[in-house]
Structures are given as C-alpha cells and as structure tokens.
C-alpha cells in the first residue's frame, strides 16, 4: 500500500514544536470517507511514517492534522511548509461512536495533545450535528501557552460548557489551575445518560476513568483513544498489539467496557 501525495495548503504553529496543517491531494481523486477518531499514516520523505489522528473533517478530500515534534519523523513533518508535499495512507481504524451521541449528556475530556482527535467532535457539535442533550468539554493542558486551538476553544466556550485547566499558569489566565480530574469530579453527571469521549496521555485517562467510575458512570458509556507503536496500520506488523487487540484496526477508539481487563495490566 503506497501513500498518496498530498500538499500542505495551510500551516499554523499552535505553539513552538506543534503545528496544525491542512493538506489536500496533489492529484484529484475521490474524497475518502473518514470519521473523527480515525488516523492517517503521514510520510515525511525519507524519514518515515507516523500515525496522526484526524483533527478536522473537511469533507472535501483534504485532511487536517496536528503534529507535535516527538521524534525523527514528526520533526521532519513539522519542518514542512505550505506548498511542500508529504505521503498519506489512510484513513485507518475505528473512530468515536457518533451514532450514540443523540440525546445523551456528552462529556468530552481531553488532555494535552488528546484534544487533537476530539476537535472534530466539538466542531461537529458546534455545527449542530449529532444532537446530544448537553455537552461539557474538559480540556487539561500543561500551560495556557500549550493549549491547542486556543482561539477556537474561546469560541466554543461561548456556546458550550467548557472547563479548561492547566498545571501551571499566572493568575491572569481565566481557566482553572490544577488537574483535570478535579473539575471532572465536580461536574454534575447524569449517570444514566452520560457518554464520555476521553483522550490524553494514558496515565491521565486512567485517573479520569477512576473519577468517572467513582461517580457511577457505566463502563460502556466511556470511550477512549489508545496509543501504541504503529508501523503498518492494517494489523500486519504486530507492533500495536495490546492484549488481543490491534490498536490500529480494532481501535484506536475503544469502549472501556471491552478493554477493561487489559487497561490495568502493566507493560502489556
């Protein structure tokens, strides 16, 4: 499976070391269906491929991806400018269960870069689709300067209930200072009707799940996105195995009920 060539239409530096790009195919081709929570394999010439989640659903054949420098390949991708090209394979994996959202009390819980795969969800909600009964967004980050989509989050907070919390900030920062588990624990949750989409560092998700379960949220109402090493994205290379799951094709979004036995096994 060879990558299709895409070109960078626009590039925004979110904060140093992290950028969001919109890319479209170099040669015209049918737009491939993709959904929030899925990912593409992005190829930087000669450097290699990395899995990067969808950070926006354009519906016009272009993709939006947020890239943070983590290693060699992401460094090469981050270095690309508008007009430069890259390779794209995808989309792969299972996304967020949008069909379950209607009528539910939706809690979107994002930590750090975990906001990236959840952004299309919030954008869809802002556009009036999916029709949940209510929406609360909890977004935790390290510092206000390291929050993704800052201007957009500001817009969202005018239409939705948005709680932002950072580990460190000056008191001029209008959000909370502390950790995300605190506002999540304090949130009013209708346990019968709640639906949670959770994405962030694994340890952050673990603590959030503890809080949610303590509140009485059902395991089947919690969905989360997992990260493991991926090379092929199609269940052949074996790298992303996590218990019986291939994170690339069975995930990356899993229902917590289904993966609960594996979630707490260390070094799995």
């Amino acid at each position: 499976m060879t990558p299709a060539i895409y070109r960078i239409d626009s590039r925004v530096e979110e904060f140093p070391g992290t950028c969001t790009v919109r890319i479209s195919p170099e040669s015209a081709g049918g737009a491939r269906r993709c959904s929030a929570g899925q990912f593409n394999m992005l190829y930087a010439f000669g450097a290699g491929e990395v899995p990067i989640s969808m950070s926006g659903l354009q519906g016009d054949g272009s993709y939006v991806h947020t890239i943070r420098i983590q290693g060699l390949v992401t460094r090469a991708l981050h270095r690309l400018n508008e007009g430069d090209s890259l390779g794209v394979r995808g989309p792969f994996g299972c996304g967020w269960p949008m069909d379950k959202v209607a009528g539910r009390q939706l809690l979107v819980v994002a930590g750090g870069l975990g906001m990236a795969p959840l952004r299309p969800i919030v954008q869809a909600l802002m556009a009036g689709s999916a029709r949940p009964a209510s929406v609360q967004l909890f977004y935790g980050a390290r510092r206000p300067q390291e929050m993704l989509y800052a201007a957009e989050v500001e817009q969202w907070s005018r239409a939705l209930k948005v709680v932002t919390t950072v580990d460190h900030a000056d008191t001029g920062w209008p959000g909370q200072i502390g950790v995300i588990t605190k506002p999540l624990g304090a949130a009013s949750v209708d346990i019968e009707n709640a639906l949670v989409f959770l994405c962030g560092p694994e340890v952050m998700m673990r603590f959030c799940i503890q809080v949610l379960l303590a509140k009485g949220v059902a395991t089947e109402a919690i969905y989360l996105s997992m990260e493991r090493n991926m090379k092929c994205a199609i269940g052949h290379c074996g790298h992303c195995q996590w218990g019986p799951n291939f994170v690339c094709k069975d995930g990356p979004v899993f229902c917590y009920r289904d993966i609960r036995p594996w979630f707490d096994i260390r070094a799995l």
């Binding site: 000669g46 491929e49 092929c232 052949h236 790298h239």
Partner: peptide, 25 residues
C-alpha cells in the same frame, strides 16, 4: 509474522526507499 519498516535516503537526498523486514516483539 511481525515486521517493521526501514526508510532510507541516498546521499543526494532525492531518492528514498522503504524496506520491510522481520521484526520481533
């Protein structure tokens, strides 16, 4: 069946290749 891939470029930097090889857990 596990495998991995290796990406390389030549000295000019204009030609790149991807190879797949057996890998081990």
């Amino acid at each position: 069946f596990c495998s991995t891939v290796e990406d390389t470029t030549d000295l000019s930097g204009d030609h790149a290749e991807r190879w797949e090889r057996w890998d081990s857990c």
